[in-house]
Design a binder for these strands. Structure first.
Length: 901
RNA sequence: GGACCUUUAGCUCAGUUGGUUAGAGCGUUUCCUUGACAUGGAAGAGGUCACUGGUUCGAGUCCAGUAAGGUCCACCA
């Protein structure tokens, strides 16, 4: 067996094992009726994406769940893939074309889409490679892509089905238009931002009463040429006599427009009068409909003003047009006033430009299964972690609006609707809707629009498993793996993706069957958002995100994984600190070296199975430390089990960290050093170490897969070359039963004794340090102890002397003039050859006496409170009494010591 | 306007159903290159648990309110 080197070198180990895992097809998710299934579908990253810290967290957690499921003996399947990301990808390719001074229109639709495919084959999906570096144990043979021919067909199938079921319609309505990407967007793709703008006060002259004006306030004077009315509230006395009259449009083509009354106008806001521009505002559009007003669209798709805006404005960009319009108003005297103003403006999430409300023909979806989607979460068929996100989810579903699913892009799933050539497109009689298209294509023209990207990814949990093709479903194990077990994602896509997947699953999967068979997943774990030190969201544009690959190079994939999980408590945003990643690396090194110590301590016994190790235990040689470490091992195993049940990953990591570093390395390994000296205790001690290390490696493996696989092999746990990940992890209950079968019942009293010994050692070390003897190993200790305490101490003298760093420890009836400390196992004296600094010693003891006296007083006060004594539970009461007795004894001893000085 | 979250050590955070002297990591101070590990060991310093009130024998923990910071939804020109 290879020797364990002095420090852990992650790079080679990671490459070696990842290749070995792939080679062995260790990540393959197979249908196995003998085992419980466990499945996760990856939230497909954009095909243009590169690994961010958010991906690191998200995918580490998925890998943790998947690997843990494997260890628990389930058949685990993690399905990877990417999303074609319509706008994002098209933009990337267009940007490349622009470098060659070309646009997509120079190529035409077909050629351009070919270009995107070329890009995707060359540069797309880098992120999947990067996930391998992180150790992700995806079933790569199942890698899916939302534009794969098979997947695309499923997307179109869903469109056709929803159309047939009456959920999809075409209509001319106000949409959020992105003048940069030249496409409609869904409401979810618009983000509101506060903007510093100008509020212009503009007066409109009454046509019939020159010299009389109506004033309105607007932030968008460039749309005045599109005004078709002025609206006031019907009950507003200021305007009562004006309703029905006409005013002159102050700029743009000359026209007289009516003053109308509509209760949508807020009397309190601005001047109380509202200019109505139906083409460029949602509320105005609705008012326009009610009053049968014409629509004058003064903007081109790209946001420049058109001829309808009048000669002076035509051709200008909307922002330049705004300035120009203000100038024109000022020149004509129509601009009464302008003031600085802060208002909220909708921005395109992707292109980061203000969106325009725009009247266009689009395809809309009336969401299916809305009520059932609510019930699925409300009734607990799907559980959200943390639970509070279910409120956000339900609130959105309560107020759900139809989904604009068409996009004016070329990269995406082209909507499977054909229009009869030359016929009226608004008449559904002239439509052909099918996956494969009409039989006589020469007579038809296909719809130009493609589907919103989310209108393909909402099918992810079942379309990736072969749905609806029965043969494919069988091959992919649909019946076995659906519903998937857990979804790990960010709360920022709860509407975009999570809610929609639930509705899609309920609508399409296993119709007629109970809800729990149709939902796409049972648990949803929402990660926090990773922020930088200043609390800002990490983003590419801010450049405040470290490159995960650099972190892997510096700290190892395991270090990064361990670190990121440890700082990600459930449901809270995460403030990223690189030093936590460093401590992840340090932990790996600690693990490595503890195993190295084990290897150097003696020949490996039979480590091939848990049973073999347990057989090597010798109950007759067990002392308190042995009982205590196994107890802590069981407690930790149990705690990790709880953490997985409750999705508390950082708590699991912390429990393992504390157990391994403090309980095992700092205490057990140290006491082992004397046990290993003695031939009669050595074999049992080694067996215990083997047992603890084995279980610890298994518990840690989901978090730090590479190093644990390496150590598993180096310490001889790999039975016939098997991987750690194909080993069955024993539960706390199972492990305890196995120990008991070997005659090992953990002894509570002995375990409690170890706690006293730990305190004793700590106090003894402190005593040495107080007297500047921390590094001396030749000091002598004396102790005054009762028989019981001395028995505990005497049984462990060799260990204690080693732990404390002393030459010896003797029992005495009386000691004088030496510095002392009161421990749970008696009063410990430091035997100083030189004279003691009595003054310093007095100060130290006095300080301690003061502290203990305070506690005594507090405990006495509690116990003298009649209400406490009569109402507190007996256990609490007894605890308080015991505490008081201990405190009083300690105080008395301190007083005695002080007196002696 | 509506909803939610956060506030505990210098920093980042734990703190399960209320119950001993409120914890961890990092940082910091002192000592230690002793045969697993200096990516380490030992000992220490550091907290009126944001504030006010209430419930209770007992509150960091439960309730009400206040303040500050953050997130989401809606949005009035």
């Amino acid at each position: 067996m290879a020797e364990i080197t002095k420090s852990y070198e992650a790079r080679d180990v990671e490459q070696k094992w990842y290749a070995a895992w792939l080679q062995a097809k260790a990540f393959r998710g197979t249908v196995d009726p003998q085992r419980e299934p466990y499945s996760i579908v990856i939230p497909p990253p954009n095909v243009t994406g590169v690994l961010t810290m958010g991906h690191v967290l998200n995918n580490t957690l998925q890998d943790v769940l998947i690997r843990r499921a494997r260890l628990e003996g389930r058949s685990a399947m993690w399905l990877p893939g990417t999303d074609h990301a319509g706008i994002a990808t098209q933009t990337v390719v267009e940007r490349e074309l622009r470098k060659q001074k070309k646009t997509r229109h120079d190529f035409g639709r077909e050629k351009f889409v070919e270009k995107v495919w070329e890009w995707r084959h060359e540069k797309g999906g880098i992120i999947l490679e990067q996930l391998r570096r992180l150790g992700a144990s995806c079933d790569w043979d199942r890698t899916a892509f939302t534009m794969d021919p098979a997947y695309s067909k499923r997307v179109l199938h869903v469109f056709v089905e929803l159309f047939k079921r009456g959920h999809i319609y075409r209509g001319k309505r106000m949409v959020n238009w992105c003048p940069a990407s030249l496409t409609a967007l869904s409401d979810e793709e618009v983000i509101m931002k506060p903007v510093n703008s100008t509020l212009y006060r503009v007066r409109y002259e009454l046509a019939s009463q020159p010299g009389r004006f109506v004033e309105v306030k607007t932030t968008r004077p460039e749309t005045i040429p599109g005004d078709v009315a002025i609206a006031v509230h019907p009950d507003d006395p200021r305007f009562a006599d004006m309703i029905g009259q006409k005013v002159r449009r102050p700029i743009g083509p000359a026209a007289d427009i009516p003053i109308i009354a509509d209760s949508a106008v807020d009397k309190e806001f601005g001047s109380g009068a509202l200019k109505i521009t139906p083409a460029h505002d949602k509320v105005d559009y609705e008012i326009g409909l009610r009053h049968k007003l014409p629509v004058i669209d003064v903007l081109e798709a790209n946001g420049t003003l058109n001829a309808l805006a009048g000669d002076e404005l035509a051709g200008l960009d909307r922002f330049a047009g705004r300035k120009k319009a203000a100038e024109l108003l000022r020149a004509s005297g129509a601009l009464v006033d302008e003031e600085a103003y802060s208002n909220n403006v909708g921005y395109s999430e992707r292109a980061d430009v203000p969106i325009e409300p725009r009247l266009t023909e689009q395809w809309w979806l009336r969401y299916p299964k809305v009520e059932e989607a609510k019930a699925a979460v409300r009734d607990g068929h799907i559980k959200f972690h943390p639970e509070r996100w279910s409120k956000v989810y339900l609130h959105w579903l309560e107020n759900i609006q139809d989904w604009c699913i068409s996009r004016q892009l070329w990269w995406g799933h082209r909507i499977p609707v054909w229009y009869r050539k030359g016929a009226d497109r608004s008449d559904p009689q002239n439509w052909h809707v099918s996956v494969d298209g009409p039989a006589d294509p020469q007579n038809w023209e296909q719809e130009n629009d493609v589907l919103d990207t989310w209108a393909s990814s909402w099918l992810w949990p079942f379309a990736t498993l072969g749905w609806p093709d029965e043969g494919e479903m069988k091959q992919q194990g649909f019946d076995y793996f659906y519903p998937t077990s857990t979804l790990v994602t960010g709360p920022d896509i709860i509407f975009f993706w999570v809610a929609r997947m639930i509705m899609a699953g309920l609508e399409f999967v296993r119709p007629g069957e109970p809800i729990e068979r149709r939902i796409p997943f049972r648990d949803v774990y929402f990660t926090g958002i990773i922020r930088d030190q200043q609390g800002r969201k990490m983003s590419k544009s801010l450049g405040n995100s470290p490159d995960p690959l650099d972190l892997i190079a510096t700290y190892g994939a395991d270090g990064l994984r361990f670190g990121i999980v440890s700082i990600a408590p459930q449901g809270q945003d995460i403030r990223f600190q690189e030093d936590r990643i460093e401590s992840g690396k340090n932990f790996c090194n600690k693990l490595w070296n503890a195993c190295r110590f084990r290897q150097m301590s003696g020949e490996a016994g039979d480590n091939s199975t848990l049973g073999a190790i347990i057989t090597r235990l010798d109950p007759s040689r067990f002392d308190g430390d042995d009982h205590a470490i196994l107890d802590r091992l069981l407690v930790t195993t149990k705690e990790v089990e709880r953490c997985f049940r409750e999705f508390e990953f950082s708590a699991a990591v912390q429990a393992l960290y504390g157990f391994f570093w403090n309980d095992f390395c700092d205490w057990y390994v140290e006491v082992s050093k004397s046990k290993l000296q003695a031939p009669e205790t050595k074999p049992n001690c080694l067996a215990i170490q083997d047992l603890v290390l084995r279980q610890t490696l298994l518990l840690l493996h989901p978090f730090v897969p590479f190093i644990t696989e390496e150590l598993w092999s180096l310490l001889g746990y790999a039975n016939q070359g098997g991987f750690i990940q194909t080993t069955r992890l024993e539960t706390a209950a199972g492990l305890q039963a196995a120990l008991e079968a070997r005659g090992l019942v953990l002894d509570r009293a002995l375990i409690a004794g170890v706690e006293s010994l730990k305190t004793f050692v700590s106090q003894a070390r402190a005593l040495k340090a107080e007297h500047n003897l921390a590094s001396r190993r030749d000091v002598q200790f004396q102790v005054i102890a009762n028989d019981a305490a001395w028995a505990t101490l005497d049984a462990s003298t060799a260990k204690l002397i080693r732990m404390v760093g002393a030459a010896g420890m003797a029992r005495r009836d009386k000691v004088e003039g030496a510095p002392a400390v009161v421990t749970p196992l008696g009063t410990l004296y430091l035997d100083l050859a030189s004279t003691v600094d009595v003054g310093a010693e007095k100060i130290r003891l006095t300080k301690e006496l003061e502290a203990i006296s305070k506690h005594v007083a507090a405990t006495e006060a509690r116990l003298s409170n009649e209400a406490f004594v009569s109402k507190a539970p007996p256990a609490v009461l007894a605890g308080a009494r015991k505490q008081l007795a201990d405190q009083q004894a300690k105080r008395a001893e301190l007083e005695r010591l002080l007196k002696a000085l």
